[in-house]
Each structure stands twice: as structure tokens, then as C-alpha cells.
Amino acid sequence: MAEPPPPPKRGSNGRLLHKTLAATANLANLLPTGTVLAFQALLPSFSNSGDCKILNKYLTTLLVIFCAIVCFLSSFTDSFIDRDGKLHYGIATFKGLYIFNCDGEEREKWKDLARFKISCVDFIHSFMSLFVFLIFALSVSNVQECLFPEAGFDENVLVMNLPLGAGVLSSFLFVIFPTMRRGIGYANMNFVER
């Protein structure tokens, strides 16, 4: 019986590949997957499966706007595990991190919350996430039938190809401009007070 080949040595190419794969794996946390899931769950009811009356048009428009706002703001959420092992969630501000799940006394323990303040990269991520969500939302057939029933062939071709282009562009920018944010629902929580 032949022995399996030895594992490849980790040289500089191995580290580069590891970094590339790690950055690509984090795209699920950067793209608006949770918002898209909620949007997909509510859309058939709100849009009456594309057979819109006037109230359905308002509900569909409000759903798109609400999910877009959530998608934009979720890029500013962050979390950390304190030295006691307790997980804390918050939203980044220009002064630092505002923690949701603690009281005032507990908040005073952390003097270094300013390191979580909003940066330029946060805005790049939030606008790209918003862009990807809006492209996706406007390309769904129920939204098109409800809000744009008069769309012609050229508009349909554009809407069919735009999500792929937006996904590639946003993935490229997310890899070039990585973020240290660990938003709500981030899968890798193996860190203590960054």
C-alpha cells in the first residue's frame, strides 16, 4: 500500500495562499448575507409575489429601504470577548465603540474603546455592502415586477448581469481593504480584547 504524500512545506507561497484564502473566507461576514436572507423571507408576502397593488408597492419599497439601512449600519458593528470571557457587542462611533449589552459601570472598565472608532475602511465596506444589497434587491423578479413593470429588454439584460459584476467588484475591494471588525454574528470569536 502506498503512503500518502507528505504535506507541502509552508514557505512564503504557503503563507500568501493562507492569507488569500482567509480573506476570501471572511467575505461571508462582509457581504450582506443576513440582510439578504431577511429580505428574501419577507419579500414574497410584501410584494404579493410580484402581483403588486398600490399598498404592496409601498411595502416593498419600505422593505428595500429598511434592509438597505440595516445593511449599511451592520458594517459598523463590532464585538469582543473581555478578559472574563463575556462577549460584548457594540457599534463603532467616531469616539470609539458603544457597547450594547452592558451597563454604565461595566462600560467604565474598558478605557481603550477608542481603538474601535470608525475609520475610512468602515465606510468603504458599508457603501460596498449597501451597493451589493441594492443591486441584489433590485434584480429580484418580484421587486422588478412590482416596482418596474414597464422594464424593457435592455433593462432586463442589465439587471441580469449587474449582480455578478457587483459581487466581483465588492469581493475585490473587500480583499484589498480588509477590516478588523467582528460584527454581530461573526463566526471567528477566538480573540480577547484586540
Score class of each variant (00 low, 15 high):
Ser45Asp: 04
Ser170Ile: 05
Leu169Thr: 04
Ala23Asp: 11
Val192Ala: 03
Val64Trp: 06
Arg10Gln: 00
Leu37Phe: 15
Phe172Asp: 03
Leu30Gln: 15
Leu43Arg: 02
Ala137Pro: 14
Phe133Gly: 01
Thr61Tyr: 07
Ala41His: 04
Pro32Val: 03
Thr179Gln: 01
Ile184His: 13
Lys109Tyr: 14
Val36Leu: 15
Phe133Ile: 04
Leu31Tyr: 01
Ser129Val: 05
Arg10His: 00
Ala92Ile: 08
Asn56Phe: 11
Ile69Leu: 15
Arg83Trp: 06
Phe94Ser: 07
Phe94Tyr: 11
Asp84Cys: 05
Phe80Asn: 02
Pro5Arg: 09
Asn142Glu: 14
Asn156Phe: 10
Leu164His: 04
Ser47Pro: 10
Arg107Asn: 08
Ala166Pro: 04
Pro5Leu: 13
Pro4Ala: 06
Gln40Cys: 14
Phe191Ser: 15
Thr24Arg: 01
Phe136Tyr: 10
Thr77Arg: 09
His88Leu: 06
Thr61Met: 09
Phe153Arg: 10
Phe94Pro: 01
Asp82Glu: 07
Phe80Leu: 05
Asn161Arg: 07
Val168Lys: 08
Asp78Tyr: 03
Leu30His: 08
Pro178Val: 10
Phe116Met: 04
Ser126Trp: 02
Thr35Phe: 09
Leu30Val: 15
Lys57Cys: 13
Cys102Val: 09
Phe153Glu: 11
Ala25Tyr: 03
Met189Cys: 02
Met128Ser: 02
Val132Phe: 07
Ala2Val: 10
Asp78Ile: 06
Phe94Val: 12
Cys146Met: 02
Leu30Ile: 15
Arg83Ile: 07
Ala187Ile: 10
Glu105Asn: 10
Lys53Asn: 12
Ser129Lys: 11
Arg10Asn: 00
Leu173Gly: 06
Leu138Ile: 07
Phe46Cys: 03
Cys71Phe: 04
Thr60Arg: 04
Leu62Lys: 07
Ile135Gly: 05
Gly85Ala: 07
Ile135Pro: 00
Leu164Arg: 07
Glu193Pro: 05
Phe80Gln: 02
Glu105Asp: 08
Asp122Ile: 05
Ala151Gly: 15
Ile184Lys: 13
Ser47Ala: 15
Asn26His: 08
Thr20Pro: 01
Asp103Gly: 14
Ser45Cys: 03
Cys67Thr: 15
Pro149Asn: 11
Val159His: 09
Leu158Asn: 06
Cys71Ala: 13
Gly96Val: 14
Pro4Ser: 08
Phe174Tyr: 10
Leu55Ile: 11
Met180Phe: 09
Gly185Leu: 08
Ser45His: 08
Val175Pro: 00
Asn56Thr: 11
Leu134His: 03
Ser119Lys: 13
Ala38Gln: 10
Val140Arg: 03
Ser170Trp: 01
Ala187Asp: 07
Cys146Leu: 02
Cys52Asn: 10
Ser119Asp: 12
Trp110Gln: 12
Cys120Ala: 15
Ala38Glu: 09
Asn161Gly: 09
Asp84Gly: 04
Asp112Lys: 13
Gly185Arg: 05
Lys9Ser: 05
Ser79Gln: 08
Asp78Asn: 11
Pro32Thr: 03
Cys67Val: 14
Val140Asn: 04
Pro6Ser: 11
Ile176Thr: 12
His88Ala: 02
Leu134Ala: 01
Leu158Met: 14
Ile81Trp: 01
Asp82Lys: 02
Pro6Gly: 08
Ile99Pro: 00
Ala28Ile: 13
Phe191Leu: 14
Leu162Phe: 11
Leu37Val: 14
Phe172Tyr: 11
Leu147Asn: 14
Asn188Pro: 05
Thr20Ala: 13
Asn26Thr: 10
Ile65Asp: 10
